[in-house]
Write a protein that binds this DNA or RNA. Sequence first.
DNA 1: GCGACACTTCGATGGCCGGCGAAGGATCCC
DNA 2: GGGATCCTTCGCCGGCCATCGAAGTGTCGC
Lengths: 240, 240
Amino acid sequence: MSRGYRDGMSNADLAPVARLIGDPTRAVMLDALLAGRPLAAGELARLAGVTAQTASAHLGLLLDAGLIGVEKQGRHRYFRLAGEDVAGALEALALISPARPVRSLRQSQSARALGYARTCYDHLAGVAGVAVLDAMLDQEWLRTGEGGYDLTVTGAAAVEGLGLDVAALRERRRSFARPCLDWTERRPHLAGSVAAAMTATMIERGWFVRRRAGDRGLRVTESGIAGLAEVFGCRLTLAA
Amino acid sequence: MSRGYRDGMSNADLAPVARLIGDPTRAVMLDALLAGRPLAAGELARLAGVTAQTASAHLGLLLDAGLIGVEKQGRHRYFRLAGEDVAGALEALALISPARPVRSLRQSQSARALGYARTCYDHLAGVAGVAVLDAMLDQEWLRTGEGGYDLTVTGAAAVEGLGLDVAALRERRRSFARPCLDWTERRPHLAGSVAAAMTATMIERGWFVRRRAGDRGLRVTESGIAGLAEVFGCRLTLAA
DNA sequence: GCGACACTTCGATGGCCGGCGAAGGATCCC
DNA sequence: GGGATCCTTCGCCGGCCATCGAAGTGTCGC
């Protein structure tokens, strides 16, 4: 009997992509890339605990499937997720995946901190991310529009007040502003080119600092709390 | 060398769940369940093109992992997706999965039809689904609120005009109303308990009919076009 | 140019798992 | 109760693929 790929069901073939993510080694690699920072093949190999050859094979598969992209820099090859679609799928999977068992107090503290502020691919997530989206909606800086959200006139003015070029951000091929379901809060935070630019600026200004280099975890600073209150009118605390 | 599960990265373990979805047989089963209608083990076996024993093993794994649920009815066991989280993850995966090669004119017509109106798990999706959400936003029946959307007073009245008990729908454990990214339109349609109830009512009224029993594909009827225009003020056509 | 480094390709191996046949419960109908 | 239907459990097999060692290619620093 032939396999039942009948018309009428989904037009996409879920299995190949899911199969790729389903290998523990590749999953660790993709998870590491969720932080948004490009990583070299060697770093990914070390993170996943495999040899360079094995890592190379895996990265080749992920590349062929279009899940990741690569940039050559001398003898290094830096890998990154292919796009927001991929980050979104990984986060959606995280939502239905069992939490990895917490082994130590240190880990559980780290997990709580991760729920407070982190990056999701390239934009702000966690309690802080949700709070910012809520504040933007409260002040009617966003309205629901074509493809997710759009900035209102006052919203655009506020974002430009952060030093960003809204018109240029609109030009990007990726989506401009859309909700992204937060896997710790189970409520949406803001994604898209404008969210990425805002997040980059906030980190640049020292409102958030990475807990560890190349890590997703963020820590809110004093100046961040002040800045978020002033610009967005939302109140955060230092502690997680 | 030990595998590098360090704290600071995602707290969830993506691989096991992705691995489950990554098997072609299980993927077909899950995809079939995306239509929302519970299916018996035998039907799923036939759809996937495997014997009953094999299907039983797969369903056992999916059950253990909490991806699907089961209801016993006599000698039949009806399976359904465990919840919207799972449906969301599957749709997110579909978004980054290559389109299955279209083999025939008939299939490509079918694919186009699927993009026009279908169910996503248990709520309306496709062009029609996006149009309904747009209309509801235009008329300010929805506002962005806690956990996604909330019905405004006029919105609640309108929905109750369809014969639904809004207060009862709010009580459900699942989310009430939230955006769900449409994988053909790449724009959100409405999900949640209220979307499910609205969709069920619309199908019951004959506004939409299933293209084939147990299938995701929907066809808009004449009365559906009239009803949608009257209630939501949105204009759809018969053809895909 | 020469060694060191980052990464890839090749080939071989071993373990895992999806598949089915056979047999065993469970339920329905008459 | 007896046969049919639906589903599960058990045991075995076969193929696939993740892994590594060894060797090859490209790049940097000196």
